[in-house]
């Protein structure tokens, strides 16, 4: 093919692909906060939307099970819950749900899910809860996800459509590590990370997701784990701020029990520490080399801490819930009574 014609073919092919992929490009650009590139991406996406050129790519995304929207449509999901909500006693919903004690004959369904941090934690949690003999655990993690990018993975939708229908009595959930990025607000505008509008929108999403998790008969507890502190050299930011949002939103929702992971993965001054002693006094590495994800020891430590917390809400005496000292955190470690909006060195 002549070089001149090749230029035409390449330029047109890039333009055609760019038009078809406009929504996807806009989503990526929004997340990065691309400046002038973002403006171009918006313009192109608006043209393709008007001309319905995005139909082809959206069909592929649909077939692949990807979400192609840029908004979080919790309204529709909430509507589904309303009917069931009406049947619930308003008085009962103000109290922490009282769940029946699980036994080996009637084990309790427990679901653990979240982002990639939940992967290692969840694997430990699944193994340990199974070993108690009174839980039937399900692990459901999705890497690189959170509440910031429903276009990439829509957690509220997944929870309502796929998780709640299985009727788990306890959900253990952890987000945050991937949420320190720009978001698209309800009006389609880019919200700069950690700005006031960003925090308001993130808080709205957290609150809406927490509301989705309320069961009509007040027979479900969600242990909402705050993210742990991240170590030096990582790109994950604002874990203290997110913890604060989760904690403060959980205060008015008894079916959500906020679990403060921070003290379990920091030193006595609440600063990040990768190596920590367990109950047996032996210091172990709690994090992987990226200083973000948990090691197996870290996953075990958090698992026993969460089980201990569940034990304060549900009678677990029928199960083997005494942690080995080599896996559990020291008994002296406790959650903070209040979660502050910022921690020194967390940003």
């Amino acid at each position: 093919m002549p070089a001149g014609l090749i230029i035409v073919v390449i330029v047109l092919a890039l333009c055609v692909a760019g038009l078809f992929d406009a929504d996807s490009t806009l989503r990526k650009s929004n997340a990065k906060g691309d400046g002038w590139r973002n403006e171009i991406a918006k313009t192109v996406a608006s043209v393709t939307d008007t001309l319905h050129i995005n139909f082809f790519r959206n069909s592929i995304d649909d077939a692949l099970g990807k979400n192609q929207g840029t908004k979080i449509d919790v309204e529709e999901l909430l509507r589904r819950q309303v009917e069931a909500e009406n049947a619930a006693s308003a008085e009962a919903a103000k109290k922490v749900p009282v769940l029946p004690a699980p036994t080996p004959a009637t084990p309790m369904k427990i679901w653990v899910g979240g982002d990639s941090i939940t992967q290692t934690f969840g694997i430990s949690f699944q193994r340990i809860t199974q070993s108690t003999g009174i839980f039937t655990p399900t692990l459901d993690y999705h890497v690189s996800t959170g509440l910031s990018r429903p276009d990439y993975y829509n957690w509220p939708e997944h929870l309502v459509k796929d998780v709640l229908p299985a009727n788990p009595s306890i959900l253990v959930i952890m987000f945050g590590a991937n949420d320190g990025q720009n978001m698209i607000g309800a009006d389609g505008k880019v919200l700069v990370r950690a700005s006031e509008p960003w925090m308001a929108e993130y808080r709205r999403r957290v609150a809406a997701t927490m509301d989705l998790l309320k069961s009509p008969d007040n027979q479900r507890i969600t242990i909402w784990c705050g993210p742990p502190p991240m170590g030096p050299g990582t790109k994950t930011r604002g874990m203290d701020l997110m913890s604060y949002i989760y904690w403060s939103e959980a205060q008015s929702r008894p079916w959500i029990q906020y679990f403060d992971t921070w003290p379990f993965f920091s030193d006595s001054s609440l600063a990040f520490s990768a190596n920590l002693p367990n109950a047996d006094g032996v210091v172990r590495s709690m994090r992987q080399k990226d200083n973000v994800h948990f090691s197996t020891a870290g996953g075990d430590r958090l698992s026993w801490a969460v089980i201990d917390r569940i034990g304060k809400l549900v009678n677990l005496k029928a199960g083997n819930v005494t942690p080995p000292a080599a896996q559990a955190p020291p008994a002296s470690l406790v959650e903070r009574t209040e979660t502050p909006p910022s921690m020194p060195g967390a940003e």
Binding site: L12, A17, S24, A31, R57
Partner: peptide, 23 residues
């Protein structure tokens, strides 16, 4: 024909973008 090659190229780029991860 060049037009067909163009369409194949564009389709290939869309497919790679759709099947690939973000970033």
């Amino acid at each position: 024909a060049p037009a067909l090659q163009l369409a194949a190229l564009a389709g290939g780029l869309v497919l790679v973008d759709a099947l690939g991860p973000e970033g």
